[in-house]
């Protein structure tokens, strides 16, 4: 799998190369997308654990459905949301195989909610790679179950209003209430340090499967610059500052009895805290087209112009510095 090289490179020491579990393919992903990186982490883990030759992946429907072209392992591509069910079938029929699903937030947290919940409840001995980018990517930027309150999308043009469009689902925390879920961790790929943590999580999830421990899921907060309308670097920043505020990073559960305590003990950001302390999102209906102009919209995924956070006594929530910086763009 060494890259094409001239004669002079043949003897050179290899500094970096594709993982063995990587099919020598070029991905179709947009610039700044997190999928390629996450694919690679999975491939690296399969390499390191030496299980490539007995692995079967299950590709969910979404941008990453073509993962079966990029990883050099057996794959099944299944109906939208059903990957945990298919993985159950594979693993139950052939417990000797290493089985993982690779699912986006539409696949796993919307249409496939029943399948993921019950696979976790049964503690199927599989590994789930769950990629949460707060938006529907493949279909062109519609609202996902994970879209943040106030976040604009094709189907929440004024920003997601929890009053009519519901609240985001924190999948890892939701599954943590199930006795069958053994290992749940939320990671991101925004910085090298985060990537290292993410890799360790992926490897641990597969290790648990090899040890027969049961259901594990790694939730990635992943950038979608295209549908967020951001530069890749801004997308990474938005994850660090805003997305991971709503979806706190870290181990949500590791064999221990369910503990959601960290959610309460360590409210990671002001936004989350405010939200949890009685602020509600209010849509500003008189917003004009100008105010919601394309530029604004593309650079304000959080959609402050489409609405505002107000406390029960009518006090408007003033976002911290990073939110204000948007106006400068």
């Amino acid at each position: 799998m060494t890259p094409p090289a001239g004669p002079s490179l043949q003897t050179a020491p290899i500094v970096v190369q594709h993982p063995g579990s990587w099919a020598n393919a070029t991905t179709h992903y947009c610039p700044g997308c997190g999928h390629g990186l996450i694919h690679r982490l999975v491939a690296n883990a399969l390499d390191e654990l030496g299980v490539r030759e007995r692995t079967v992946g299950v590709a969910g429907v979404g941008c990453a459905i073509l993962i079966y072209n990029y990883l050099d392992v057996d794959f099944q591509e299944v109906p939208h949301g059903r990957a945990p069910a298919a993985a159950t079938g594979i693993k139950r029929a052939r417990p000797d195989l290493v089985v993982f699903t690779y699912q986006g937030d539409g696949d796993l947290a919307a249409i496939g909610t029943a399948e993921i919940v019950h696979a976790a409840a049964r503690s199927e001995n599989i590994t789930v790679i769950y990629v949460n980018n707060c938006v529907y990517g493949m279909t062109g930027g519609q609202m996902a179950p994970t879209t943040l309150p106030g976040q604009r999308s094709e189907t929440s043009p004024e920003g997601r209003d929890p009053a009519t469009q519901g609240h985001p689902i924190r999948v890892a925390e939701m599954l943590a209430t199930l006795d069958g879920a053994v290992y749940l961790e939320r990671v991101s790929v925004t910085h090298p340090e985060n990537i290292k943590v993410a890799y360790r999580a992926v490897r641990k999830a597969f290790t648990y499967q090899l040890e027969g421990k049961g259901f594990s899921l790694v939730e990635f907060l992943s950038p979608c610059p295209t549908n967020w309308g951001m530069k890749p670097i801004d997308a990474m920043r938005w994850i660090d500052e805003t997305v991971s505020a709503y979806y706190p990073l870290g181990v949500i559960k590791d064999r221990e009895p369910v503990h959601l305590a960290h959610l309460v003990q360590q409210p990671p950001t002001a936004f989350r805290e405010d939200y949890m302390h009685g602020f509600r999102y209010e849509t500003v209906t008189q917003a004009t087209e100008d105010e919601l102009g394309r530029h604004t919209r593309r650079t304000h995924p959080f959609g402050r112009r489409g609405g505002r956070w107000v406390s029960v006594d009518g006090e408007e929530y003033r976002p911290s510095d990073h939110d204000d910086s948007e106006d400068e763009d």
Binding site: V56, V58, Q76, V78, P79, A85, A86, G89, A114
Partner: peptide, 26 residues
Amino acid sequence: GTFVQAESEVAAINMVFGAAGTGTRA
């Protein structure tokens, strides 16, 4: 063999997909 009471017929048929996809009579 293996038996799973699925959470729905939707899940059941996809479990069949997975198992049959390994060459098991399902």
